[in-house]
Nucleic acid binder design. Structure first.
Lengths: 248, 248
DNA sequence: ATTTCCAAGAATGTATCCATATATGCAAGT
DNA sequence: ACTTGCATATATGGATACATTCTTGGAAAT
């Protein structure tokens, strides 16, 4: 069984990673020839990848004017959190009715993993990746347990909104992390006991606070977030670029 | 001033229409050469269109095995209604806080349009298109008023689920239409008076009932919905082939 | 008769080439 | 000096040709 990766799929992954990690900044124009050369493929699969990412919401497209990395307003980011809160709360209500013993154990296990990662009283940098994975898996598990596939689909695309993604855990305040993890613990227990409304309320607050906290962090450390959307930039940034152009 | 429609965008429209209208049935394999010829374009823009539709959720794709019209399970259809109910209820809560006089008038106007279309005590076939447009515009307006762009985005993609689309109004029972329209009236008034929770409750029921009604209709008139997904159709016509074997 | 293997056909994936639309820069006119 | 218009350059959109993978039909062996 060959893991047949078509090169368009590879391009999608590479580009998604580049955009979400900030290598490509919002507003950057996605020049087909250069990108194709950088990725070592031709323009055909690249265009397919860009088309795909356009529908996924990561890039924008205008006829005859090409693709560009999508920019998000603060309102859109806030809206993303609001919808996340609502849909994941919904997932809790639904999941509570479907929980089996095994499901309960799985969630409890994830909470346990978090306990271990935080037991030193801090979130060590080398544990950040594991904590993030645990966090993602917890939320994903709840949505899966809801039995409604659309919830996962939509939350997934909300994670393409840079600041709304649960990829980012830049919480400097350990107390906030601890509280957040305690939310998980309570949610897991509430779900296991069939307390759907309670779990939903916890989840809604869990996510709503994340937005509030983001706002605070944005006030305190704007430079961490404000990769300034280069508005009508005079600067042509190129990624790893070999510049082969000679004009000024 | 040419309405510069790139031929990929045209293909997207044509295909979307063909799929939603049932010309292309769920499970149908989307043969690139044939489709390209039918649409009068080459495979390049066609593939772009298919890629786009894949992300939009109307078709599926597997590496080296091509595209096909997506099939939806009854569970997925039900799930679509459930999420619609939740998100549009959310839109009501948000919209109630944002309503201006003009917004109120707009909604009232739409309700009025519906009144006129139904005043004869029936929904005449020639009015069905107008009624549908009014219905779509009403729901769209509420979502727009919510100020959260994601709600519209997601509901939009739920309308790609054939039976969950509000394109279909195949209500034979006039009482059901009348009640549904009365829901609109109450929702419009509730929103205008800032009664967000009430509007949300009405909207949730409005949509939840639509699913229940769909279930009923599906029991009564299954043939209207069950456009049978033609599983591995035996048409293997090879033209120009040298082996002309007589049909059994 | 059934199964296995191989080869030819067909369809998909990718690269390259051509056409068209947009952007840029220079010249001419006011 | 500024604006306008045109010519050239550049980028994107689409078509065709080529490569790779999958499917299918048949022959040989058990």
């Amino acid at each position: 069984m060959t893991e047949t990766h078509t090169s368009m799929e590879l391009a999608v992954e590479k580009l998604r990673e580049a955009i979400l990690s900030g290598t490509l900044l919002p507003g950057d124009k996605l020049h087909q020839d250069r990108l194709a050369e950088m990725l070592g493929i031709s323009r055909t699969p690249l265009r397919a990848a860009l088309t795909s990412l356009t529908q996924a919401g990561l890039v924008t497209y205008e006829s005859n004017r090409g693709f560009a990395v999508r920019e998000f307003s603060l309102d859109e980011v806030a809206g993303a959190f609001a919808v996340r809160a609502e849909l994941e709360a919904m997932a809790c209500r639904l999941a509570a009715a479907n929980m089996t013993e095994e499901d309960a154990r799985h969630l409890a296990g994830l909470v346990n993993d978090g306990d271990r990662l935080l037991e030193t009283g801090e979130l060590k940098p080398e544990n950040l990746g594991d904590y993030r994975r645990m966090n993602v898996e917890f939320h994903t598990a709840v949505m899966r347990l809801s039995g409604n596939p659309w919830i996962r689909t939509f939350i997934q695309s909300l994670h393409n909104v840079p600041a709304a993604s649960d990829r980012v855990i830049m919480w400097r305040d350990f107390k906030v992390i601890e509280r957040s993890h305690d939310d998980h613990r309570r949610i897991a227990r509430a779900l296991s006991q069939g307390q759907g409304e309670r779990a939903a309320a916890l989840m809604r607050e869990h996510i709503t606070f994340a937005l509030e906290h983001l706002h605070q962090q944005l006030q305190l450390y704007p430079q961490d977030f404000l990769r300034v959307p280069n508005l009508n930039k005079p600067v042509k940034r190129r990624m790893g670029g070999r510049s082969k152009r000679t004009n000024p």
